[in-house]
């Protein structure tokens, strides 16, 4: 499989920005914890994409790849920890909604 890769920074930046915007929106516009987690994941996808693009344009593919591998490992652990928090919250509250169960006052 050979795909011709364009060498245009702005093209990639546009797509990165769209993914990023989508992730942020998904994270902020919902009250369901699982959806927030999905938003976080979309954000991480956008960053992974941008790191590889940066490595490609800078001619440091191997370095960028090494960084991305580390990022993916960290991402998994963070997701597992978040999942644990969500499940714990659900077991105590029987709800996935963060906003209407606030026990803390400012």
């Amino acid at each position: 499989m050979t795909i011709e890769i364009p060498q245009a920074f702005w093209l990639y930046f546009t797509f990165f920005a769209l993914l990023f915007l989508d992730g942020i929106w998904c994270m902020l516009a919902t009250r369901n914890m699982v959806r927030v987690l999905i938003g976080i994941e979309i954000l991480m996808k956008s960053v992974t994409f941008f790191l590889i693009v940066a490595g490609f344009l800078a001619g440091r593919m191997a370095l960028a790849q090494a960084l991305v591998i580390t990022v993916i490992v960290i991402e998994v652990v963070v997701v597992v920890v978040i999942a644990g928090v969500i499940l714990g919250f659900f077991r105590k509250r029987d709800s996935l909604d963060v906003s209407n169960t606030r026990e803390m006052k400012g």
Binding site: I3, I5, I52, V53, M61, Q65, V68, I69
Partner: peptide, 9 residues
């Protein structure tokens, strides 16, 4: 990523 040549990632 594969298309960029980052096969391992």
């Amino acid at each position: 990523l594969f298309a960029f040549g980052a096969t391992l990632a």
